[in-house]
Amino acid sequence: MSSSEPVAAAAAPPWRTAPHLPGAFRRLYAGEMRLVLGRRRNQALLGVLAVVPLVIGVAVRLSTPRNGDGPQFLSQIAGNGLFLVFTALTVALPFFLPLVVGVVAGDSIAGEAGTGTLRYLLAVPVTRGRLLAVKALGVASCTALAVLVVALVGLLAGAVLFGLHDVTLLSGDTVSLADGLLRTVGVVVFVVVALFGLAAGGLFVSTLTENAIAAMATTIGIAVFSALLDAVPELRPIAGALLTHHWLGFGELLRTAPDGGALLRWSLLHLAYVAVFLSLAWARLQTKDVTS
């Protein structure tokens, strides 16, 4: 290490950090959404979700269900197309929606690790914190999109098949259609937030493995397992804290005076799940050796 030059430069190499350009995170997010929504598999899954309200709507149109049979709100559809939204969400929540959330969330990081693109993303560099942020945002967007597909197709099909009218609530009171639509927005928001808990769980699982299929299956398994525990009478004392227990609680919004406190409590529970799973995912990702 002989040197005749002054080594003053040793502490500070003569280059300056390139600044982050404005809109960098937005571009990263847009790229992520293009990637996820560009996949045929994900498009097909959204298509399946769109079919759910269509099938129910057509089936109801062709027959007259007796009162009390079938899922929640089914008997009200014929009288008011708006109820197709609620019925479709009720039908999609136990399996179809968790399926879509599980696939997208499970694939988010494990998929990149499996194809090896994760190492190139990190080398770009996308720092691990940014990576988790954009993946979380992407998964959240897809979750919202999935619920919106069910709700909007339900609304459209309901309007076409049965028409939209003033809404007769569960308690028997009738409110205006505008009020009903407002409540529907509330229902969609509640369901989206409820599913965020599972989505965050899937994101965490996705940081654990390079096998995307395993991560997807595990995420869907979480929802199934939670529902299973929910069905065990002996576990009733803890049932209220289960991930899926309050998913159908959106029915509360269809009462004359919804219990806002309960809705808030349930949503906070779902957000608590989000916080726990995101923390775990962050801790895992920060220390993860990327060897794939």
Binding site: H20, L21, G38, Y120
Partner: peptide, 20 residues
């Protein structure tokens, strides 16, 4: 390592938009 379902150019685009 790239995404198989994207074109070569799209894969490069994905990396480029990821660079802040």
């Amino acid at each position: 390592a790239f995404h198989p379902h994207l074109s070569g150019a799209s894969n490069l685009r994905r990396l480029d938009v990821s660079d802040a």
